[in-house]
Design a protein around this nucleic acid. Structure first.
Length: 821
RNA sequence: GCCCGGAUGGCGAAAUCGGCAGACGCAGCGGACUUAAAAUCCGCGGGCCCGAAAGGGCUGUGGGGGUUCAAGUCCCCCUCCGGGCACCA
C-alpha cells in the first residue's frame, strides 16, 4: 500500500484541479459536503479519521454521480492550547499553530482525502479574523453586541471567562477537574436571546438533522410559557414580579420565594443585620453547591424576611422568603410557592411549616388527592370566581384578567442566555472597540480593520488579558474626537471563528467582504454536514444564530446553515473513548504505516454503522487490509483481459449469470446505501461478497468460460465501487485495467434491475411456524404452484402425515406455513 | 427525576415492510501448499442432546407477559449500559 498510495498522492498533489469545485456556472448540480474543521493540535486522532473517511467517501461518490462537489477543509486555529504551548516551549502561538497545521495537513494528504485546498481557511490569520471584527461591528450597530457588567463563569485554569455552554456540571469544558468560579466583570455579549424563538422554530424544519441533536437544542433553548404576576409589598412602594407557568394555582400561593441575591432581599437585609447574615449564608450555600457540581442536589433552605406581599388575585397576605433554590438569572428571580401543586414547594412548605392549600382537584372526582397534586388535568376549587374552570381555561382567563387589571401579563421565558464572547486571552480575535474618556465606547471604523493581534507578546498565566500589558496596543486615538482612547484588550471566544467559517470556503480569498454573496447563494445551504455529536449545542447553536444574523444583514438568503447533519459515533477502544488519559490511543500514522490509508479508512467505515460508536480492533484493520490485497491480486491477474475489452458486457452465458447478477445486486445495494441509510459497513460487506463470487468464478474466467467483456465489465464496476472507500487502490487498478480517465470523474456504475433479479429462490416451508424444509422454486411462482411444490416435498409429506391442515399461509416467493393439528 | 439511544455467537456486527436469526469480517479449529514457518488457498463453525456418519430433535436475539399462522422486529411491564438535560418556577 505504501508504494501505491504515496505514488497516487504525489499525482493528486500535482493536479489540484481534480478536487477543485467548479464555479457556479457549472452545468452540474451542486453538492456541498463538509466535515467539521479541526483544532490544529498537531496530531489527527481516530475520531478525525472516521469523520473524514465518511465525508470523503460521500464527496467522491457525489463526484462520480455527476455533481459539482465542494469539499473544503480548514483550521479552527485560535485557542488556549497554543498559549499553553507557548509558555511551555517558548514558541510564539502563531508558529506553534502553523507547524501543527502543516503536520496535520500532511496527515490528511497521507490519508488521500479529496480536499479543495485552494479554499483552505485558517481562522487565526488576519484575512479571516478581520471579518469576525467586521461582523462584530455590524452586530454592535444593531444592538446585537453589547457590553454589560455581569456575573460570569471564570475558569482559574484557563484564566478566562467561559460561556454558559462551556461549563459542564460546574466544571470547565477544557479542564474536567477544574471548578468554574463566578466573577463580576464587564463583558461583551451577543444577543442570542433575540433569536431564541426562531432558533427553536427552525428545529422543526431541520428534519434531516438527528432527532437527538434537535432535542438537545430544544432543551438548551428551554422555552417556557407562563405569566408574570406582580405582588405588592406591604409597607413599601415597590413590587415583586414572579414568573409562573401555573397562574391557575395562584389561590394556593402561600409564600413568595426570592433568590437570595434579589434586589428586594438586599433591601430587606440592609435594614436587618440578622437577616443579612442569614441571606449571606444562603448565597454561600448556592456557591458551594455550584462548586460541588451538584446544583440540583442542594438541600433547600430559606429564611423568612419578616415581610409580607399581597396576592393581587386574593388580596391575601403571603410571607416573603429568601430561598437558596431560587435562581436570580431565570425568570424574574422570584416565585410564588404553591405547596399543594408543586413537588418542590410542597417539600419546602412541609419543612418550614408554611400553609398548604389545595386549589386544584382531579377532573371527575370529588375525592381528595394525595398532595402535591401536580397534574394540569384538573379543575379549580376554592379559587373565587375561577372555581370550576379547567386548569388550561383558567390559565388563559386569569392571565387575561391580570393583564386587564395591570398587574400581570403572559410571558415566555427562555433558558438560553446571551452569549458572552469576551475572553481575557491573547490568542484570539481582538474585539474592535475603543474606550474614549469623552465619547465612551467607540467602535473601530471599518477602514481601520483588521485590528491586528500583536506578534511579540509575553504570555503568562497570571490572569487578565496579555494584550493589556502592551502600551502600543492599548493606546489608540479616538476616531470620533481624535483624543486618546484605550483599546479593548479582550479577545473573542473561539466559537465565533467556527460560527461562519463554512461561508468563507465559498470565496476564501475575498479581501473585500467576508464572502462573495453570489457564491454563497449558489452553494448554501450545506448539503451534508458531518461531525461529532459533542458539538450538538455549542457550535451548532452559535452557527445557526450567526446564519440568522447574516440573513438579517442581507448577506445571505438561507435561514439555516446546513440542510442535513450527520453525527458520527465515537471511536472506542477497550470499552472507553480513546484518550491520552486512558492510554488507549491508536495513532493513525501507525495504522497507515502498517496497513495503508485505504485499509485504515475502509476499516473505520466497515467496523460499525457510522452513527454508532466504533470499537477499534486492530485485527479488523488487518482483515480489511487482507481483503484489499485479495482484490489487488485478483484484478492484476485478470488485468490483461480487462485491458483488451471495452467494458461493454455483451452476451452473458449461463455460467456467468450468477456473477453478473451478484454484480448488479452489489451496485444496487451500494447506490441505495449512499442515498439512504449510510450503512457503509454493509456496503463494504457487499463488495466483499462480490469478491467472493469472483473468487469462486476464478477458474471459469481463467479457462475462458466467462467471456472477457463480462470479466472486464465486472472488474471495472468493482474498481469503481471501491473508489469512495479505497481511492488509492481504486485509482491504481483503474489504470492497470487500461482506463485513462480519473476514477473520480468516471460515472458511477448503473445497475439493471432485470439483471439483479434472481430467477430461482429457496423458500422456507414451515409447519406450525417451525422450519421443516427448503424448496427451490421460480421467484415468480404462483401461490397454488408454491403450495403444490411444498406438499410434493418428501420432508413436508413426512411432517404432515397423520395431521390435519387447518390453514395454509402462502407468501409468494417468501415463505409457506402449514398450520396443523 | 425527565428526554433520547442501545443490549443479537468467543469479538465487531447483519437482518430496510412482522416471514430461513447470525450476512460480511475478526479470532478459533481442520485441511492443502512448504523441509518448516509466514503468506496464500479450501473447508467447518450459536448452544444442548441423539447418531459412527449422513442426518435429526430441542433450544436460542437482556428478563417477564401479550398480539399473530409467524416476533430480534409490534404492544405492556421490568433490568442493565451509554448520552443529554436537571432546584428552570
Amino acid at each position: 500500500p505504501e508504494e501505491i498510495e504515496t505514488r497516487w498522492q504525489a499525482r493528486w498533489a500535482a493536479q489540484p484541479e481534480l478536487y477543485a469545485a467548479e464555479p457556479a456556472s457549472s452545468s452540474k448540480p451542486k453538492y456541498y459536503v463538509l466535515e467539521m474543521l479541526p483544532y490544529p493540535s498537531g496530531q489527527l486522532h481516530m475520531g478525525h479519521v472516521r469523520n473524514y473517511a465518511i465525508g470523503d467517501a460521500l464527496a467522491r461518490y457525489m463526484w462520480m454521480q455527476g455533481y459539482n462537489v465542494l469539499h473544503p477543509m480548514g483550521w479552527d486555529a485560535f485557542g488556549l492550547p497554543a498559549e499553553n504551548a507557548a509558555i511551555k516551549n517558548n514558541t510564539p502561538p502563531r508558529q506553534w499553530t502553523q507547524k501543527n497545521i502543516a503536520a496535520m495537513k500532511q496527515q490528511m494528504n497521507r490519508l488521500g482525502l479529496s480536499y479543495d485546498w485552494a479554499r483552505e481557511v485558517t481562522t487565526c490569520l488576519p484575512d479571516y479574523y478581520r471579518w469576525n471584527q467586521w461582523f462584530f461591528l455590524r452586530m454592535y450597530e444593531r444592538g446585537l453586541a453589547y457590553r454589560k457588567q455581569s456575573k460570569v463563569n471564570w475558569c482559574p485554569e484557563c484564566q478566562t471567562v467561559l460561556a454558559n455552554e462551556q461549563v459542564i456540571n460546574g466544571y470547565c469544558w477544557r479542564h474536567e477537574d477544574t471548578l468554574v468560579e463566578q466573577r463580576e466583570l464587564e463583558q461583551w455579549f451577543l444577543r442570542t436571546t433575540q433569536y431564541a424563538q426562531e432558533l427553536l422554530n427552525g428545529l422543526d424544519k431541520l428534519d434531516a438533522w438527528p432527532e437527538r441533536v434537535r432535542t438537545m437544542q430544544r432543551n438548551w433553548i428551554g422555552r417556557s410559557e407562563g405569566a408574570t404576576v406582580a405582588f405588592t409589598i406591604e409597607g413599601r412602594s415597590d413590587l415583586v414580579k414572579v414568573f409562573t407557568t401555573r397562574i391557575d394555582t395562584i389561590y394556593g400561593a402561600t409564600s413568595l420565594q426570592l433568590a437570595p441575591e434579589h434586589p428586594l432581599i438586599r433591601a430587606f437585609a440592609e435594614a436587618n443585620p440578622e437577616l443579612a447574615t442569614q441571606v449571606a449564608a444562603l448565597i454561600t450555600e448556592q456557591e458551594h453547591a455550584r462548586e460541588a457540581g451538584d446544583v440540583g442536589g442542594i438541600e433547600k433552605h430559606g429564611v423568612f424576611t419578616g415581610n409580607y406581599a399581597i396576592n393581587p388575585f386574593t388580596q391575601e397576605r403571603v410571607p416573603v422568603w429568601a430561598a437558596n433554590y431560587v435562581l436570580l438569572d431565570y425568570g424574574t428571580g422570584a416565585i410564588m410557592s404553591v405547596p399543594a401543586h408543586d413537588e418542590r414547594d410542597y417539600d419546602f412548605a412541609s419543612k418550614y411549616g408554611i400553609a398548604i392549600k389545595q386549589v386544584i382537584r382531579e377532573t371527575g372526582t370529588a375525592e381528595a388527592q394525595p398532595l402535591p397534586f401536580t397534574s394540569e388535568d384538573g379543575v379549580l376549587v376554592d379559587s373565587g370566581e375561577w372555581t370550576g374552570m379547567s386548569c388550561t381555561e383558567a390559565q388563559q382567563k386569569m392571565t387575561a384578567f391580570a393583564k386587564q387589571k395591570g398587574f400581570g401579563e403572559a410571558t415566555i421565558t427562555f433558558r438560553l442566555k446571551d452569549w458572552g464572547v469576551s475572553r481575557q486571552r491573547y490568542w484570539g480575535t481582538p474585539i474592535p472597540m475603543l474606550y474614549c474618556k469623552r465619547d465612551g465606547i467607540v467602535p473601530v471604523p471599518d477602514d481601520h480593520l483588521p485590528v491586528l493581534l500583536p506578534q511579540n507578546v509575553e504570555i503568562t498565566q497570571e490572569g487578565g488579558s496579555p494584550l493589556a500589558k502592551l502600551p502600543g496596543f492599548v493606546n489608540a486615538v479616538c476616531p470620533k474626537c481624535g483624543g486618546p482612547a484605550r483599546r479593548e484588550t479582550d479577545t473573542m471566544d473561539t466559537f465565533v471563528d467556527s460560527s461562519w467559517y463554512f461561508y468563507r470556503y465559498t470565496s476564501a480569498k475575498n479581501d473585500k467582504a467576508p464572502f462573495d454573496t453570489t457564491a454563497v447563494a449558489y452553494w448554501f445551504p450545506i448539503d451534508q454536514y458531518i461531525g461529532g455529536v459533542e458539538h450538538a449545542i455549542l457550535h451548532l447553536i452559535y452557527s445557526r444564530f450567526w446564519t440568522k444574523v447574516m440573513r438579517d444583514l442581507g448577506l445571505i438568503k438561507n435561514d439555516e446553515p446546513a440542510a442535513r447533519l450527520f453525527t458520527q459515533g465515537m471511536v472506542i477502544k477497550n470499552g472507553a473513548k480513546m484518550s491520552k488519559s486512558k492510554g488507549n490511543v491508536v495513532s493513525p500514522d501507525e495504522m497507515i504505516a502498517r496497513y495503508g490509508a485505504d485499509a485504515a479508512r475502509m476499516y473505520s467505515l466497515f467496523a460499525a454503522p457510522p452513527d454508532r460508536d466504533l470499537d477499534w480492533q486492530e485485527d479488523g484493520v488487518a482483515g480489511v487490509s487482507r481483503f484489499l490485497s485479495r482484490v489487488y491480486r485478483f484484478v492484476m491477474r485478470h488485468a490483461e483481459m480487462a485491458r483488451a475489452s471495452s467494458g461493454a458486457m455483451g452476451a452473458v452465458p449461463a455460467e456467468a449469470t450468477a456473477l453478473v447478477r451478484k454484480l448488479h445486486q452489489t451496485i444496487r445495494k451500494i447506490t441505495q446505501d449512499f442515498g439512504g441509510r449510510w450503512h457503509f459497513n454493509t456496503s463494504i460487506a457487499a463488495i466483499m461478497e462480490l469478491m467472493n463470487e469472483l473468487t469462486a468464478a476464478d477458474a471459469s474466467i481463467a479457462e475462458g468460460r466467462i467471456p472477457p467483456p463480462v470479466v472486464a465489465n465486472v472488474l471495472e464496476s468493482l474498481v469503481l465501487m471501491l473508489a469512495p472507500f479505497a481511492p488509492h487502490l481504486s485509482s491504481e487498478l483503474w489504470e492497470q485495467i487500461g482506463r485513462s480517465d480519473a476514477v473520480l470523474r468516471h460515472p458511477w456504475p448503473k445497475f439493471d434491475e432485470a439483471l439483479a433479479c434472481e430467477d430461482e429462490t429457496e423458500v422456507p416451508v414451515q409447519i406450525n411456524g417451525k422450519l421443516r424444509a427448503l424448496i427451490r422454486v421460480e421467484v415468480d411462482i404462483s401461490r397454488e404452484a408454491l403450495e403444490a411444490a411444498a406438499r410434493a416435498d418428501e420432508r413436508v409429506q413426512a411432517a404432515l402425515a397423520g395431521k390435519t391442515v387447518v390453514k395454509v399461509i402462502v407468501v409468494p416467493g417468501k415463505l409457506i406455513n402449514f398450520v396443523v393439528r
